[in-house]
Design a binder for these strands. Structure first.
Lengths: 251, 251
DNA sequence: CGGCTACTTGAAGGATTTCAACGTAGGTGG
DNA sequence: CCACCTACGTTGAAATCCTTCAAGTAGCCG
């Protein structure tokens, strides 16, 4: 793989080797690139979806807002992630996507996804895999919010982000940049800002992490994994089942 | 629609009208029917998925278990729901599916899903819609677990179940049978059994619900919706976007 | 320097959990 | 037919985790 490959290509390559033609198809899909400033909305809960986005640079969040302003961030989107994959299926968005940093995104019409499913079965599977993975991450988030303590949730989130960033080569060893403030973390973790601050202090105190502004260093990945009961199975970083690969090759 | 239509057909019909041929295809898919006793596992976290299931009768749950036994139920499966839709994409299951009651399920090989996607684009969209909806329900669950109080969570769950059961005609007005004990509710809601009991009492005390064993009567759907900040947008009970329908008709 | 935002810390309060006891209903076996 | 057992729901009291309120600090920028 070329070092210049897009984050999406890097991510999908973990799933299955891509042919030159498939790379070219993805490159065409990612041809229309746009910059999005921090805090801009990509799509908004209750309004039509509009377009599909592939994150190439920067972070976004997907969130739901209650009528009194309480907010739950359901997932972060990092480079390589797709936003609005189901735009074709829904009249209006069931959640919002908002840029957390300045971003570079590729955007295309939802119809392009339909065309991809029709003309490129292997890429269709890769996209379906992205959707399945999204669902699995959401599932794991539910088990964090419902059944893990504050300390476990924070440790779990940091490990998840590390693994996901490593997959698209955006971590430096066990270090990465977390470009969000503690209010955003609180809304991700289902905690108050104050308690996020305390919990991070505690992780620092136990020697599990170090922080320097937004720079994070997971000093003991093993210790964090133990503290969080973390198992990365749900992130799907395994090859596609062999049976599936054979089936696709036959087409 | 014939009254004898399967719950899956009833559910998909809400999305788009199905042709006779599509109904026949679904009937073939649901041909191999099997009974599953309560407490049996359909697939198990960490083990290969095996087969895909369509619930025809009875309830199941999808859940994740932490290593110390804590459990989060991520969703209930009721008649018309599909379990293991992504079986093809994953080597092993990221969660378990367990029967909550005696069930009747249709089962088929994951390859049948692949074939369906290849040969029946409209049904493929309908299945993708099921997946998208599953993700949306999970998202809403996250916002319940992370940002709603116990009372709101319980009210929200009851309303969600009512709407979903109504969609497959398994509710009697605002009454339905909830075939689970409070321990299961607790693991769904991210609460303790004791607090579920107290919260249900409170809803009864406020005249919002009545219970008689497992029979539930939502006395004031409006009151519950207000208490829960419930908006059924996330359940996707809207027709497919017109644009999408046109696109498919053209094929 | 003042004013903003973000983070931290202490103290008090509240929501929920845990522990424990009790009641009821259904099922089983003597 | 009754005694016993188990599963489930309820209720009270104490404990805990987390939130809220409040104040203080640090960094940044005009």
């Amino acid at each position: 793989m070329k070092e210049s490959a897009s984050p999406l290509v890097r991510k999908l390559t973990l799933l299955m080797p891509l042919t030159e033609e498939e790379r070219a198809t993805l490159a065409r899909l990612e041809a229309a690139v746009r910059r999005v400033p921090a805090r801009a909305g990509l799509y908004v809960q209750g309004e039509p979806f509009g377009r599909v986005f592939v994150v190439r640079e920067g972070w976004a969040m997907r969130c739901r807002t209650l009528s009194d302003g309480r907010r739950q961030i359901t997932n972060f989107a990092i480079p390589g992630d797709i936003l609005g994959l189901y735009a074709n299926l829904l009249e209006v968005a069931d959640h919002s996507a908002v840029a957390l940093t300045d971003m570079e995104v590729a955007e295309f019409a939802p119809d392009a996804v339909t065309a991809l499913f029709r003309d490129h079965p292997r890429l269709a599977v890769a996209f379906a895999w992205c959707g399945a993975r999204e669902e699995s991450i959401l599932s794991e988030k539910a088990s964090c919010l419902g059944r893990r303590t504050a300390l476990e949730r924070v440790a779990h989130l940091l490990l998840e982000l590390l693994r996901r960033l490593q997959a698209v080569r955006l971590a430096q060893g066990d270090r990465f940049l977390l470009p969000v403030n503690q209010e955003v973390l609180a809304d991700t973790l289902g905690l108050s800002v104050v308690h996020v601050s305390r919990t991070l202090s505690r992780l620092r105190g136990e020697g599990l992490i170090e922080t320097d502004g937004q720079n994070l260093y997971l000093k003991s990945v093993a210790g964090l994994a133990e503290a969080a009961d973390f198992d990365d199975l749900y992130l799907y970083y395994r090859r596609m089942p062999v049976r599936m690969q054979r089936q696709l090759a036959a087409e």
